[in-house]
Amino acid sequence: MADTEWEARVKGLLKAELKRQNVSYAQLVDKLAAIGVAESEPNVRNKLSRGKFTAVFLLQCLTAIGSRELRL
Results as ranks from 00 to 15, higher is better:
residue 1 M to P: 09
residue 1 M to D: 08
residue 1 M to G: 14
residue 2 A to I: 10
residue 2 A to S: 13
residue 3 D to E: 12
residue 3 D to R: 13
residue 4 T to N: 13
residue 4 T to M: 09
residue 4 T to F: 05
residue 5 E to S: 13
residue 6 W to T: 10
residue 6 W to P: 00
residue 7 E to G: 00
residue 7 E to D: 10
residue 8 A to V: 00
residue 9 R to K: 13
residue 9 R to F: 10
residue 10 V to H: 07
residue 12 G to F: 00
residue 12 G to Q: 08
residue 12 G to C: 02
residue 13 L to C: 11
residue 14 L to Y: 00
residue 14 L to N: 05
residue 15 K to N: 13
residue 15 K to E: 15
residue 16 A to C: 08
residue 16 A to K: 15
residue 16 A to R: 15
residue 16 A to P: 08
residue 16 A to G: 13
residue 17 E to G: 01
residue 17 E to V: 09
residue 18 L to F: 05
residue 18 L to K: 13
residue 18 L to R: 12
residue 19 K to W: 00
residue 19 K to A: 14
residue 20 R to K: 14
residue 20 R to G: 02
residue 20 R to M: 05
residue 21 Q to Y: 06
residue 21 Q to R: 15
residue 21 Q to I: 00
residue 23 V to Y: 03
residue 25 Y to H: 15
residue 25 Y to L: 15
residue 25 Y to N: 15
residue 25 Y to F: 14
residue 25 Y to A: 13
residue 27 Q to P: 01
residue 27 Q to C: 00
residue 27 Q to R: 07
residue 27 Q to A: 07
residue 28 L to D: 02
residue 28 L to G: 04
residue 28 L to Q: 06
residue 28 L to E: 01
residue 28 L to K: 02
residue 28 L to V: 10
residue 29 V to Y: 05
residue 29 V to C: 10
residue 29 V to H: 05
residue 29 V to P: 07
residue 30 D to Q: 13
residue 30 D to A: 12
residue 30 D to W: 00
residue 31 K to V: 02
residue 31 K to N: 03
residue 31 K to S: 01
residue 32 L to W: 07
residue 32 L to F: 06
residue 32 L to P: 08
residue 33 A to E: 14
residue 33 A to C: 02
residue 33 A to K: 15
residue 34 A to E: 09
residue 34 A to K: 03
residue 35 I to V: 15
residue 37 V to F: 05
residue 37 V to Q: 07
residue 37 V to D: 07
residue 37 V to L: 03
residue 38 A to Q: 12
residue 39 E to K: 15
residue 39 E to N: 09
residue 40 S to M: 03
residue 40 S to L: 07
residue 41 E to A: 03
residue 41 E to Y: 00
residue 41 E to P: 03
residue 42 P to T: 04
residue 43 N to F: 06
residue 44 V to Q: 10
residue 45 R to N: 04
residue 45 R to M: 04
residue 45 R to F: 01
residue 45 R to I: 11
residue 45 R to D: 01
residue 46 N to C: 01
residue 47 K to W: 02
residue 47 K to V: 02
residue 47 K to D: 05
residue 48 L to F: 07
residue 48 L to A: 05
residue 48 L to P: 06
residue 48 L to Y: 03
residue 48 L to H: 03
residue 48 L to Q: 04
residue 48 L to V: 07
residue 49 S to K: 13
residue 49 S to R: 12
residue 51 G to P: 06
residue 52 K to A: 09
residue 53 F to L: 06
residue 54 T to N: 07
residue 54 T to D: 07
residue 54 T to E: 07
residue 54 T to M: 03
residue 55 A to R: 09
residue 55 A to V: 13
residue 55 A to K: 08
residue 57 F to Q: 12
residue 57 F to E: 11
residue 58 L to F: 10
residue 61 C to A: 12
residue 62 L to G: 04
residue 63 T to Y: 08
residue 63 T to R: 13
residue 63 T to W: 04
residue 64 A to W: 00
residue 64 A to K: 01
residue 64 A to V: 01
residue 65 I to Y: 01
residue 66 G to E: 04
residue 66 G to K: 05
residue 67 S to W: 02
residue 68 R to S: 11
residue 69 E to F: 04
residue 69 E to Y: 03
residue 69 E to K: 11
residue 70 L to G: 11
residue 70 L to K: 08
residue 70 L to P: 09
residue 71 R to S: 09
residue 71 R to L: 03
residue 71 R to V: 10
residue 72 L to F: 10
residue 72 L to A: 12
